[in-house]
């Protein structure tokens, strides 16, 4: 769930967002004709791995924790965003679909990032469900099936090519993939494939590095912005040594309160939704990066699961200096559970 990032990108496009649309969740369409998520979704695959142009926003968001030959830790990000100026698709330059992508490689010492922009309709970017291919320019995530993908991105100072093989089932968040984002009822369709095994090559300024590790892919689409009083977003995707996984997010509000939610994922892929109040995330330490203070060490607690851990950034300077800047990087978990994962934080202005 990277609502905030995409919202900010949408703001970059200055597409006017409907103020009164939120109260109509589940009614099918909003004021501008976009479809809105409804409870009890029934997904159809592979079609739903593809784009949903009738919804305003959508993404294919992959993060990976990798290791080099000498045990050096690396993080990798590959994200394709879709943001529609109007529902539906059209041929050529007429297309209302705007695509953006972010790619990054994080090492303990450095963080390399790049971004791309495109318009739908010309073939410069898009997503095809079967055989699966998501691409923008020369960046792509594609393969015979969603379980077997090749991932590729290039930037001025880095490049990577990584094979992904799924070793577990898809995981659905919230209520069967219907994920509520605020007390007022904003929601999205949200599922993940957190069980990828990853192996490939990173090209870094120092040369090529062979890497292996695990990856987590998020799929989410919706049409509704966050509530007006929500200022930012802290999102965790953690994989514990026990094999269990945790997705947790909190939306920060202007009044200092939060709306928190998450999913507990057992090693076999069975899930338990964690509602607001079931988890807490508390900043422990901040780092000054890109001229602002960002929390890079957290205390995360899920009492029902006896989880009480500290989550620390591998590289506290994992700043995405993209058109809409945010923090995104690999983390290490210690405490009641050990493990690793990814952290995304937005709205730290």
């Amino acid at each position: 769930m990277r609502h905030e990032t995409l919202l900010a990108l949408t703001a970059l496009l200055a597409a006017p967002l409907p103020a009164g649309a939120q109260g109509f969740a589940g009614m099918g369409t909003d004021a501008e004709g976009f479809a809105t998520p409804a409870p009890d979704p029934r997904f159809e695959f592979p079609a739903d791995h593809g784009a949903h142009p009738d919804y305003r926003i959508e993404w294919w968001y992959l993060t990976a924790n990798l290791e080099g030959p000498e045990g050096t830790a690396y993080g990798l990000q590959w994200t394709l965003f879709r943001s529609a100026l109007a529902p539906g698709e059209a041929e050529g330059w007429e297309s209302p679909q705007i695509w953006f992508a972010h790619a990054a490689v994080t090492t303990p010492e450095a963080h390399h990032a790049a971004e791309r922009f495109a318009r739908g309709g010309t073939g410069q970017a898009g997503v095809r469900p079967d055989p699966f291919a998501a691409w923008i320019d020369d960046w792509r995530m594609a393969g015979e099936s969603f379980d077997d993908l090749t991932l590729r991105a290039t930037g001025p100072e880095f490049a990577y090519e990584v094979e992904l093989t799924a070793e577990g089932p898809l995981v659905f968040h919230g209520d069967g993939g219907y994920s509520v984002k605020s007390e007022a009822g904003q929601a999205s369709y949200y599922y993940s494939q957190p069980f990828y095994r990853a192996a490939g090559t990173l090209t870094l300024p120092g040369g090529e590095v062979a890497v292996t590790g695990s990856a987590w892919l998020d799929r989410e689409w919706s049409s509704q912005p966050l509530a007006a009083d929500q200022t930012g977003w802290d999102w965790f995707s953690l994989t514990f040594e026990s094999g269990a996984k945790l997705m947790a997010f909190q939306l920060r509000q202007t009044d200092g309160g939060t709306f928190a939610s998450g999913t507990w994922i057992a090693p076999d892929g069975t899930t338990e939704a964690l509602g607001d109040g079931a988890l807490t995330a508390t900043p422990l330490e901040e780092t000054q990066v890109a001229g602002r203070m960002v929390p890079t060490r957290w205390r995360l607690e899920v009492p029902a699961r006896d989880v009480a851990v500290t989550v620390a950034a591998l590289n506290p300077r994992s700043w995405m200096d993209t058109s809409v800047p945010y923090w995104e990087g690999p983390v290490r978990v210690a405490g009641s559970h050990a493990g690793r994962g990814y952290l995304e934080m937005t709205g730290y202005e």
Binding site: L13, A14, A118
Partner: peptide, 26 residues
């Protein structure tokens, strides 16, 4: 021009006043 792929980002569009990209594209 295509403001999304023009080097310098939306530079040329900023040239055209403070028009939001959506106005330009849509």
């Amino acid at each position: 021009l295509d403001p999304l792929t023009m080097p310098g980002g939306a530079g040329p569009v900023t040239q055209a006043g403070d028009a939001p990209l959506a106005t330009f594209l849509r």
